[in-house]
């Protein structure tokens, strides 16, 4: 997978690998509320290559893709070498499309599972540990169903032991930064994206594409151990002073 010409080649390679994925179908007006917006192949390629650069031992990882839609990020993560992807999708039709796409693109079916589930209603059992090593997702932005973006983040924090990568409207940045702090995560905007809004609900199929500003964010869990160490050090200091 590693292109000889360096990063650029690799990025192009990922993008072309993802470029033939089908978009959501036109119409389907009843699904307006679901805020299904496909991550464009070039955006997905850029994002998954960033994840691949940050993550170690991606080949041993189980990656979650919550709200996997047409399977763009799932495919992308497998393309950059993730060991396994588990995709969660509310829309039965697109859950099946994602699985078909994965079967089409990856011979080994032990690399993925798709679950047809509403993330909002998903109550993950209290396992011994968190099953996911990393989550990479493009959740609903929360414009039609207020707060759903945060619900996705909370489920990710609940079930993932490592980094959570997620796309959110830039207008919510300050709010999410606060949320990350409350939940014990470091917050970094990895990439600002001009995200094309879907035209599938537009009756007239206007030619102009509308964009919205989106952040690709890394939520990195703060390590608890250094804090404990710090406390111990402070205790030692106290002892010395005594």
């Amino acid at each position: 997978m590693q292109g000889k010409g360096g990063k650029q080649v690799k990025l192009k390679h990922i993008e072309s690998f993802l470029s033939d994925l089908d978009n959501f179908e036109q119409g389907e007006f009843s699904k307006l509320k679901l805020e299904q917006h496909m991550t464009p192949a070039n955006v997905a390629a850029l994002c998954v290559s960033m994840v691949a650069e940050i993550e170690e031992n991606l080949e041993d990882q189980i990656v979650g893709d919550f709200g996997c839609g047409t399977g763009m990020l799932s495919c992308g993560m497998l393309c950059v070498g993730a060991g396994q992807v588990i995709g969660l999708e509310l829309d039965s039709k697109y859950a099946q499309i994602t699985l078909d796409t994965l079967e089409d693109k990856f011979e080994d079916p032990s690399m993925y599972d798709i679950i047809n589930i509403n993330v909002k209603h998903w109550q993950p059992p209290t396992l011994n540990g968190k099953l996911f090593d990393t989550v990479v997702m493009n959740p609903p932005f929360g414009t039609k169903d207020e707060g759903i973006d945060v619900v996705f983040l909370e489920k990710a924090f609940q079930t993932c032991s490592g980094n959570v990568y997620s796309m959110h409207k830039s207008s919510t940045r300050k709010f999410l930064q606060k949320k990350a702090e409350q939940c014990g995560y470091e917050f970094t905007v990895l990439q600002e994206i001009k995200f094309p809004l879907p035209k599938r609900f537009n009756k007239y199929h206007k030619k102009e594409v509308a964009y919205t500003e989106v952040d690709f964010i890394l939520f990195k869990p703060k390590k608890m151990i250094p804090q404990i160490k710090q406390q111990q050090n402070e205790e030692k200091k106290v002892n010395i002073q005594e």
Binding site: I62, P125, L127
Partner: peptide, 22 residues
Amino acid sequence: IINCEFRKEPLVKLIPKLDWNA
């Protein structure tokens, strides 16, 4: 049952995260 490559490391990493009883 579809055979795939046996790799021990991911399996070892996975075990403590599962609910073994379930």
